[in-house]
């Protein structure tokens, strides 16, 4: 282990795979484009285990794409992604690195969970079934264990009484808390939060954010979060990454980034967001 100056960011980059114990998520030269539109250009960054990293930046800057790549909802056009030292976007065939096939993806994505902007609860299942579905079908948990786990999680998100409710009977904030519980029921190492409060009425936002704060402080899950809630980002993040045009233009602690941003674009962006709020 090299000694790291406390005031300096640890260097991220090529040799980070070597000490995988300290890296949960590793992007190396990741390129993603939709048609001619290049969303991510040669993106490098890494996230340590247990870290809470927030991605901010103007819309279209590629933040959500990063989450979707990690969740394997999209495929990279170049570069590699590793999760806990294991390739996500690729796999070894012999000793050659080739793009991952469905079987490989199925294996690696189990460690990752995601909460969506639009909740995406299953409307044909009640709250409990939404949460137990994957633990039973994917982890092979006995039904009773899965239900017990689900009920504990519902208590934690403050919806202990809504076990048999139907998603459509819940408010947006309640639905999102169920979605959080559903993701946690898989005991993921990494949890991706994709603008989880953007679809909510303003008065419901706080409830969801408080639940997330609680989870972030009591678990060792690694979080990658895209949000426009700057107050929340400041409170809960260990690190904030400012994105613009598919690249990280600033990478700093929330205290630093929100109070004395180095980059002009960051300043403009923060002004715009804070003025709007």
């Amino acid at each position: 282990m090299s000694s790291i100056d406390a005031t300096e960011e640890p260097e991220v980059g090529a040799e980070a795979t070597d000490d995988s114990a300290n890296v949960m998520i590793q992007f190396d030269g990741v390129v993603k484009q939709f048609g001619d539109n290049v969303v991510l250009r040669e993106l490098d960054f890494s996230v340590s285990p247990g870290e809470f990293v927030t991605l901010i930046g103007p819309s279209g800057s590629g933040k959500t794409t990063i989450l979707r790549l990690l969740m394997t909802l999209e495929k990279v056009n170049g570069g590699t992604i590793q999760v806990d030292g294991e390739y996500l976007s690729h796999m070894y065939r012999g000793d050659k690195l080739v793009p991952a096939d469905e079987k490989h993806l199925t294996k690696v994505r189990k460690r990752i969970g995601m909460v969506f902007q639009q909740f995406n609860l299953f409307p044909n299942m009640n709250v409990l079934q939404n949460i137990t579905e994957a633990p039973i079908r994917v982890l092979g948990l006995p039904k009773s264990d899965a239900e017990e786990r689900a009920k504990d999680l519902l208590d934690m998100v403050g919806l202990g009484e809504k076990v048999t409710a139907h998603p459509t009977q819940l408010s947006g904030g309640q639905q999102q808390r169920v979605a959080i519980a559903r993701a946690l029921a898989m005991r993921p190492d990494v949890l991706l939060l994709d603008e989880v409060t953007s679809a909510l009425d303003p008065e419901l936002v706080a409830g969801v954010l408080n639940v997330l704060k609680e989870i972030a402080s009591t678990t060792d899950i690694t979080f990658l979060c895209v949000t426009h809630e700057m107050g929340f980002a400041k409170d809960v993040s260990d690190r904030v990454l400012m994105f613009d045009q598919g690249q990280i233009i600033e990478d700093a602690s929330p205290d630093k980034l929100f109070t004395e941003p180095e980059h002009e674009r960051t300043r403009e962006f923060l002004h715009a967001v804070i003025d709007r709020a």
Binding site: L73, T106, M114, E133
Partner: peptide, 18 residues
Amino acid sequence: VPKGQWEASTALSLPRRR
């Protein structure tokens, strides 16, 4: 059926058949 339902199923690692 909204695309989000497929994505949520992927995020939960549900097998295709399920």
